[in-house]
Amino acid sequence: MPQNSILQVSNLTKTYKSGESSLTVLRNVSFEVNRGASCAIVGPSGSGKTTLLGLCAGLDNPSEGSVMLNGIVLDKLSEDEKAKVRNQHVGFIFQNFNLLPTLTALENVMIPLELQNRSHPRKRAMELLEKVGLGDRVKHYPAQLSGGEQQRVSIARAFANEPAILFADEPTGNLDGETGATIESLILELNKTAGTTLIMVTHDLDLAKRTDRVITMKNGKVYTDSLRPLQTQ
């Protein structure tokens, strides 16, 4: 893996088996993403975007091929080892926010830090929540926050462990246009200032255009892979 590359996907295939029949959702996908880059994965429903994201983040095992994340080959790791990799190198932002409903905003943000045994997790979580504009909502439970606020908490949580790479799955998919735009800007800005690599699955082509690279998926294959779309246009 070249020094500059943080994610290297080689010949990735994923087949789901159900009884006698099987369904291949990813076919022989390969690409590399450079450290600090931002990359959008776009494509129609069922094209394999989310499956690809899950495999890249080590949430699932490929049927064939391999994923190397920050120099670590994921497919040779046990579930626990993969969990450790996620905790140390990866951040997540989900379409439906996925905050733990029984924890306050602050506690949600503290989790990745606590899992790392970091000192003063509360202080760092507070700073992050203030950064995303929720300094006054720290003690609220997810159910007491609006969709946009929940996604901000989710962003704060994603950046809490200072990840090398951030995976975002349709981060604005559940938000209205205005709130979505604010969240987009927040993610991209934090990504830039923290120097984090961003891999984002999205339907929103406008959002995709704001990233360094757009990978288009179709029928489980990479259909197009265009670098720096803004410059090439």
């Binding site: 983040a57 949430l59 579930e79 626990d80 969990a83 450790k84 990799v85 996620r86 905790n87 140390q88 990866v90 997540f92 989900f94 996925n98 905050l99 733990l100 409903p101 029984t102 989790i111 990745p112 899992l115 790392q116 949580r157 462990n161």
Partner: peptide, 16 residues
């Protein structure tokens, strides 16, 4: 189950 899945995404092991 959902909360457990999120915890696992954030790096908690199955045993944790």
């Amino acid at each position: 189950v959902k909360s457990v899945a999120v915890l696992r995404c954030l790096g908690a092991t199955g045993k944790q």
